[in-house]
Amino acid sequence: MSGYWQEIFVLVGINFIVVLGVSILTGFTKLFSFGNAGFMSIGAYTSAILTTRFNVPFLLAVLAGAILAGLVGYGLGSLTLGLKGDYFLITTLGFGECVRVLFEYIQPVTGGAGGLSGITHYTDFTIVAISVVVAFIFAWTLIHSKYGRNLTAIREQEVAADAVGINTFKNKLLAFVVSAVYAGWAGGLYAHHLTYLEPKIFNLAKSAELTITTVIGGLGSLTGSFLGTCVVTLLPEVFRDLSTYRMLLYGIAVVVIITVKPSGLYGYKEFSITKIIRWFKNLSKRTSGTVEKGA
């Protein structure tokens, strides 16, 4: 692979890890978070400060960033997950913006609005590839475990889930913490890919982009999230001239998808080869059937 495509792969991979987190939270519990860029920011800054100031090994620093994001997620989730729908979304939004403003304010630690530079470029192809595989396998296992089924139950009908004895609060908290850890993890990788950090990289627009990616890919589908990430990350690379229209097109795409086909590209379904083979078999049967009739 040439350097250009490696670069693209690294970007898609990092974005995919955050989107996976959002997908677990939003696609499977229907909780919308506008604060995941904030968790990403926490992971990015923690790991970057650890490697640049304290010479902590890269992987350990990323791990620390992810854990800290998870802990903050646990604290925030414990406080706010009792709130529903809009109210929960607003608190996460407020949290994300608070993180940004705070990081801009505590200049001695984070470099403030001017940014934190001189981060070593550690994130390479192999590390991102391994991270993506691990993140995906964990997410897949989680979704197909008892917890995953609980989450789906909450998504479909929270009151009913509660009534059959699912601890909805605990399960939602689990999904929220996982999404925070994923965001922190990806943030750490991103910091050592970009080698430069600014609080405003992780603004509200970034959080919105993450949710948009999940919606385009399809709520409730992990493979759909991958498709969504590819579309959102790759399209502007393929159509360079369109880069000014990028976000405009995403906005329109979201409105069209949610009004016409709310399930997104791959909503509530997973990509599977056997299903595709079956579809082709049925197709050939159908066409041969009509041929026989015709004859």
Partner: peptide, 18 residues
């Protein structure tokens, strides 16, 4: 109603970037 909110988010992105 959650979908209304997502649509509103999309409209907001469209206006800003438009």
């Amino acid at each position: 109603t959650m979908f209304l909110m997502i649509a509103a988010m999309g409209i907001s992105t469209t206006y800003q970037n438009g």
